[in-house]
Design a protein around this nucleic acid. Structure first.
Length: 197
DNA sequence: TATGGGATTACCT
DNA sequence: GGTAATCCCATAC
């Protein structure tokens, strides 16, 4: 079943980030259904997190989407090249978000390979930039609802036990401690599609 | 109006 | 394992 808006509106973003492991993310763009099982996420707790765009409640036109109520997508361009898919969580104004870093391809693999340039299956959606590209997403999908028919996340009843979720420091940040090594990255232990570690 | 940096990836050795 | 590619936008002048 498609996750309802209430799933995203909760304030416990770290819990949601863990719960997203083993869920299924899909997009349907130009009639092409693509997606797979989420195996890696990172939490960004806006106001209290120097690694977040919204640290100290810093609000700009660029990150305004993070201040929306939960249940929308926040797409951000990094290094001018890579689009990244985030899930906004919490009530309006919380500025919490979760970066989807990797999924295991399941549906529409041919379409995703065309978008990615026929890279091997193992690299299809490994890493946030690759993932967004495989799903056909870019900044024009910023602020798109996750409860509509364009981008959504499903619970397919898969149970992931806590022992199978590994928490580590986040990747790619250049911010100061303790934010650099705080374990707010979650991945499915031993899964071959996790981007790192 | 000018400038610097960024939640990365891919390719070369 | 190291490094170049690449471009939007927030900040400063």
């Amino acid at each position: 079943m498609k996750l309802p808006k209430s799933f995203y509106l909760r304030e416990d973003t770290l819990l949601i980030a863990k719960e997203l492991i083993g869920k299924f993310v899909f997009t349907k763009i130009d009639g092409n259904l693509t997606g797979g099982m989420i195996v890696e996420t990172e939490a960004y707790i806006g106001p209290f997190d120097a690694g977040s765009h919204a640290f100290n409640n810093r609000k700009t036109p660029k990150n305004a989407t993070m201040f929306e109520a939960g249940g929308v997508a926040y797409l951000y361009i990094c290094y001018g090249i890579h689009d990244m898919l985030n899930v906004v969580t919490g009530e309006a104004g919380s500025s919490h978000a979760i970066l989807i870093r990797a999924f295991e391809p399941m549906v529409g693999i041919e379409t995703m390979q065309q978008r990615r340039g026929n890279v091997p299956l193992k690299r299809l959606a490994k890493g946030p930039g690759s993932l967004a590209k495989a799903l056909g997403l870019n900044k024009s999908f910023d602020k798109e609802r996750l409860t509509g028919d364009l981008i959504w996340i499903e619970d397919q009843g898969l149970i992931i036990t806590p022992e199978n979720i590994k928490a580590t420091g986040r990747v790619g940040l250049s911010c100061a401690e303790p934010y650099f090594s705080i374990p707010w990255r979650f991945c499915l232990s031993g899964n071959a599609f996790v981007s790192k570690g």
